[in-house]
Design a protein around this nucleic acid. Structure first.
Lengths: 300, 300
DNA sequence: TGCAGAGTATATAATAATTAAAAACAATTC
DNA sequence: GAATTGTTTTTAATTATTATATACTCTGCA
């Protein structure tokens, strides 16, 4: 077999529905109209029509396509489930590495991984090629891939890069007018931080999503495809690691909230130097947390 | 045929040489030793040995491999040429886009392009997957790729990102001790700039490589895999565009040299604010040049 | 018995071949 | 002559095949 005929099956079933919606004896529209309706090419419509004629649902002669009977349940062709979208694959892959603590230097087996993540092997191949741009995996001379990160160095460089990007975002942020959307959002975030701080003893687990919203709000002011692409990977990695290292989670989160509030105030004041100072402070803490979580993990 | 047997052919030819270096009647070493010597797996050695026996060059029985005759010219198997290394592919691809002015939105045909660049189609596939991380190409829903850049927006975002990275590098650079390798290099670059400035009227073409060395010297102080990866693409794109826009090249280059010298002095002084100021100035000019070169080109 | 090397089986990844789908083109009908 | 259908060509996704790598078993000798 070559590729699957999922597209054909889907088109066939949709055509059945169209036939049912019409009275027996009436004529179907032209191939082009049907193709437009089902959103496939004429070729697929034609092969579906051929099958319909074989099944006796229609009589097809020249440009006359007459509906002969309404469809039955077993006329339907079984449709296969859709493939996994790339973002899900990315999350699943990173999750796998972090959760099962896959060591750096591990050889990645494309065939095995593609089964594990339930994607076509060439999809995974492409995904790895993309990741190799981030230095997370590397192609071996004659076939195969190796996982390079998360070494301490990788975490260090990632953190440093994050700091560069986020300080840049802060510089943009302080220059925004008060009525800007992001400023609005930040005021809401400020309230949420205050609220969480008041009930930190019980609800310190709620910090992780708040942290995510906070940082993505800051970064949202930089409209840059390169930055966004990186931000996606960075936030995933930080997110997973935070979930991981449970030591002193309450204190850690409380301290982070206070740092966030300081930064929010600084951003509000429009004082760039102060904002950079507050952001640097917080990002340095974040970096330290990531590194120590790696260290703790490697000791286990 | 499936994959090429280049590896086998190479091994076979190397084995012929080894046989020739021994006297007729003497015994070859073990399979494992031969494999180690030729740097292939035992499997390949064994299939080569089988072929050698078929050709009557050796007699092989159990662990006895006796050399029967010395090789003739037509015993040699023709070896195919090596594939294209990935950096060359990257350069060739960008070159193609920029030189032939491939418009944004162009559908990329993997089969055709892989022939054009003389690489395996899956090599190109992987390469495109990598580029998609930079937002230069995009996968279409059902197969195929589209070229997204170089639109004006792409150039803008690229320039902005470059500015972020390079200002960060400058911040690192000013903190370096006087005896640091990069400082040393910068002193040499300063001389080269002065020298070129003196003979700018004739030799203004020589600026492009000097510009490349200058910027890569600055960026070399940031040891970060993410930064380096981006820098590679960025410098390629800027390089190509500069070669392109020939309007006022002499004046443009002279002005750039003066800006470089200002930045070198500022870096030398260790005054961060001054260095950032000089770098911003130069990078802004650079950005403008890139944008106007795009504009000029689109008018043609 | 231990071990070095030979033989065998299985796994993996690169590529060719195949096929579904799309698009381009030509022919036909109203 | 416009719309529609029939046919051919092109394209890329996926499978099948094969070269290569590796893991494992077997054998002969010290």
């Amino acid at each position: 077999m070559a590729r699957t005929d999922a597209r054909f099956r889907e088109a066939y079933n949709k055509l059945l529905v169209i036939c049912d919606s019409m009275n027996t004896g009436s004529k179907l529209p032209s191939e082009l109209v049907l193709a437009g309706e089902i959103e496939v090419s004429r070729t697929v419509v034609r092969s579906a029509l051929t099958r319909l004629q074989e099944q006796g649902v229609i009589r097809w002669h020249g440009r006359e396509k007459t509906v002969m009977r309404s469809s039955e349940v077993n006329d339907q062709l079984a449709e296969e489930k859709e493939g996994v979208p790339p973002e899900v694959l990315e999350a699943a892959f990173l999750n796998w590495i972090l959760r099962f603590d896959v060591p750096p230097g591990t050889a990645l087996n494309v065939a095995k991984l593609s089964k594990q993540f339930e994607v076509a092997s060439h999809t995974l191949q492409e995904f790895l090629a993309g990741l190799s741009r981030f230095g997370l995996v590397e192609r071996r001379p004659r076939g195969g891939w190796v996982l390079l990160g998360f070494t301490e160095n990788f975490a260090l460089e990632l953190s440093d890069f994050r700091i560069v990007l986020e300080l840049n975002a802060v510089r943009h942020f302080v220059k925004l007018p008060a009525e800007h959307e992001a400023r609005e959002q930040m005021r809401v975030l400020r309230e949420q931080h205050m609220s969480l701080l008041a009930r930190i003893d019980q609800d310190y687990h709620d910090f992780s999503p708040l942290d995510g919203s906070f940082h993505s709000c800051i970064n949202s002011v930089v409209k840059n495809r390169f930055v966004s692409e990186f931000q996606k990977v960075i936030s995933l990695i930080f997110h997973y690691h935070y979930q991981w290292d449970k030591t002193a989670e309450r204190q850690r989160n409380e301290a982070a909230i206070r740092e966030h509030l300081q930064l929010i105030d600084a951003l509000d004041s429009g004082d760039e130097a102060r904002a950079i100072e507050a952001a640097s402070q917080h990002l340095a803490t974040s970096k330290q947390t990531l590194l120590s979580s790696l260290l703790v993990h490697n000791l286990v």
